[in-house]
Amino acid sequence: MNISGNTIFIPGATSGIGLGLALRLHAAGNRVIVAGRRTELLAEIVAQNPGIEAVTVDTADAASITRAADEVKARFPETNVLITMAGIMRIEDLHTGDFLAVAESTITTNLLGPLRLVAAFVDHLSGKPDAAIMTVSSGLAFVPLPITPTYNATKAAIHSFSESLRVQLADTGVQVIELAPPAVQTELLGQQDDPNAMPLEEFLSEVMTLIETQPDAHEILVQRVYPLRFAEANGSYHAVLETLSGH
């Protein structure tokens, strides 16, 4: 992925990593279209950051994704990068069936949302120069945090889907990149003040450096995610799982 000169659509860019990455990419010389459910917040982002555009979308709603995709392709036909950023992370207690509502909502947002976005844009991107799809998994795709089981499962699925998508799109010129963050200081799980999570600005700086220095990378991995990403390969999986389990 080129560090600049793109037109980038980022659903899920109204806070946290999504907004931070949108602002960094805008500053790097890209045209950025942020998207989310809260129109007031989108208007605020646009007002505070001249040049950034906005589209309303609810990534848990298939019809909303279709409408947003149609709007983006009509207003910004040069769009050549999709970043599927939107996601939710909820604690679940699996001792009773009460977890199911949270699990279903998580699957709808974290798995069906990105798949529907890819489906809405893949034909369009196949005809664009320097096109890319960036999916967003997590270090927890590789070793689960037991209190958020469905979140982990959706991110593992995104990793697997990204691998297949990359192989299948190899003949189209569309690059497939997977961003796998570690724990970052955002409001995703109320960890904005967690000293054990990576500071957001530090994470964003490392991500931008990796995009710039490794434009052909399959995965964007900051150093802090290595213990999770490579736990199984280096034999530390069970030790890392015990740590995440609070043992």
Rank of each mutant, 00 (worst) to 15 (best):
I177F: 08
E92A: 00
V240R: 14
F99C: 11
I45V: 11
I107W: 10
F161A: 01
V222P: 10
P11A: 07
S64T: 02
T135C: 12
V102C: 09
S162H: 06
A54H: 05
V143L: 05
T150V: 02
I211T: 06
V184D: 00
I177A: 10
M1E: 05
T209F: 13
H26N: 04
E178C: 11
P199A: 01
D123A: 13
A60S: 15
S205P: 06
S15I: 03
I177Q: 02
R90M: 13
S105M: 12
S15W: 12
R229H: 05
F161C: 02
A141P: 02
V57F: 03
T135E: 09
D70L: 11
P129H: 07
M208E: 15
H159P: 07
F99N: 00
G235N: 09
P195Y: 11
A103V: 03
T66L: 11
T14N: 00
I147Q: 12
F9A: 05
H95M: 10
V225Q: 04
F230K: 06
A13Q: 02
Y226P: 07
L115A: 14
A103Q: 01
A54G: 03
H159T: 15
R166V: 09
A101Q: 14
T148M: 14
H218K: 14
T96S: 15
E53A: 08
V72Y: 03
I220L: 15
D58S: 11
E202W: 08
N110E: 07
I17D: 10
T59D: 00
T14R: 02
G12R: 00
L21I: 03
I88S: 12
A119R: 14
S138R: 03
F121N: 07
V222H: 10
Y151G: 08
V46F: 10
A119Y: 09
D130Y: 12
V32S: 01
A103R: 01
K73E: 08
E78A: 15
A62E: 15
G97H: 04
T186D: 06
G5C: 09
L179G: 00
M89F: 14
I220D: 04
E219G: 10
R116N: 06
P77V: 00
E163F: 10
D193Q: 13
V240P: 09
D98I: 09
T79Q: 12
L82Q: 11
T39V: 14
S138M: 01
I65R: 05
R75E: 07
G36C: 01
D171E: 14
G235W: 04
P182T: 02
D123G: 13
D61V: 03
R224P: 03
I177L: 06
D58N: 13
A63L: 04
P215T: 05
V72G: 02
V222A: 05
Q214L: 13
G113T: 00
N110D: 04
E71S: 13
V55Q: 06
I91A: 15
E202V: 14
P146T: 06
L221F: 13
I52W: 06
V207K: 06
L25F: 11
G29L: 01
F203R: 10
S160K: 12
S160G: 11
R90H: 13
T79N: 08
R37G: 00
A86D: 01
V176K: 10
A131N: 08
A231S: 04
L169N: 11
V102W: 07
Q191C: 07
A13N: 03
Q48V: 09
A27R: 15
A13S: 10
R224E: 03
V225K: 08
R75Q: 07
A170P: 09
E92C: 00
P114H: 01
L100M: 14
Q191M: 10
F99G: 08
